[in-house]
Simulated assay, not measured.
Amino acid sequence: MRVDETPTGGPASTKSAPNHTAAPATNWIDLARVCAMGAVVLVHAFSPLVSTTHAELGSQAWWGAHIIDSALRWCVPVFVMMSGGLLLRPRENEDAATFYRKRWAKIGIPLVVWTAAYLAWEWWRDGLGAEGALEAASAGTPSIHLYFLYVIAGLYLLTPFLRTVVAYTSRTGLWWFAGLTLGIGAADQLFALVDGVGGSTAATQFLPFLGYYLLGWLLMTSDPGPRALRYGGLMFTAGVAGIVLGAWAAARAAGEWGTGAEYMYDFLSPPMVLASVGAFLLLRSAGLKLAAIGGPAAHGIGRVVGVLSGLSFGVYLVHVMVLNTLRDLGGTPDGGAAFFAACGYAAATAVVSIAVVAVMQRIPYLRSTV
């Protein structure tokens, strides 16, 4: 999703001192955006099977959807980490007012427009009333995916001040800061399992993701060598395995897909943090290798990836409307057929969403919303 700017400059800085402001290498970001966007579409296509709406707990269809979903849930944390990695580098020539003016065009307008669009769509599709619409907007969840806009908007509000922290804090201190904020967010989600405890609003949606935002800067400016690739692979494998087995154990113990299983899918459950960090490191390694490959074929792939990356933010915004419209028209079978239906809906949603966004980006006024 192109809701941030890509700085240019030399290789990542690995110094352990304050004022570490060198621009990190970012020529891998386009591939990571495209992969994360594809993961988002697949997660939303398979989630009704995982929650047992269209598949029985423990069936082959459920296991297939559960493994795919577990292996792709890193998508939103990776988007947040990429934004932090790109935006937290201190910039002497950009004060808070300048930063906010730039960000409003990129996130403020889409937030307002798509909040209204999805609330109107839910009114037309499901009869959402005025009170329900107000509650959804106040909670920062006018649709199942638009919370991300509220998360990013909140993080942007703090970015000019976080840049000062980054400029004058050692890397060791920043690792502690990121770890503590991730830990607080994880504890908040854990306590929310207790009935009647927790809950967020449009103004606080971003707080649990602050640790990921800081972590993005630290990871993006770390050594991208072979050791990072090995660590990424180990963390991703361990994290996904933890999600798969942990959610299954919780669901089996409860006899249904419930709160305990959902917690394993939360963005700040321990295995999800591991999987997300691992995915970030793996995507960076893959993207850097792709960028280093020469020849016409690699150049052509790079151009396609660049185009898709430019469409990814818009695809994120429209894909839920496209996916649910396709489901409304085609229906969703139960059992084993539901798995193949989800595959088809994911592919169709991606193609239709890309086409819709490509057209919208060519239309004055509409292009500022995607």
Rank of each mutant, 00 (worst) to 15 (best):
D69S: 09
D69E: 08
S70K: 01
A71W: 06
W74M: 05
V76H: 03
V78A: 01
V80S: 00
S83W: 09
G84A: 12
G85Q: 03
G85A: 02
L88G: 01
L88E: 03
P90Y: 04
R91T: 10
E92L: 12
D95F: 09
D95G: 05
A97Y: 06
R101D: 05
K102Q: 10
A105L: 15
G108E: 12
I109G: 06
I109T: 11
P110W: 09
V112F: 13
A116P: 11
Y118V: 14
W121S: 10
E122K: 09
W124L: 12
R125C: 14
L128V: 04
L128F: 09
L128Q: 11
A130Y: 05
G132T: 00
L134V: 08
L134N: 04
L134P: 01
E135H: 10
A136Y: 07
S138D: 13
S138W: 13
A139E: 14
G140I: 12
G140M: 06
S143P: 06
S143W: 14
I144A: 11
L146M: 12
A153Q: 04
G154W: 02
L157I: 13
T159D: 04
R163W: 15
R163S: 11
V165T: 14
A167P: 03
Y168N: 12
Y168Q: 13
S170F: 02
T172V: 08
G173L: 00
L174W: 00
L174R: 00
A178W: 02
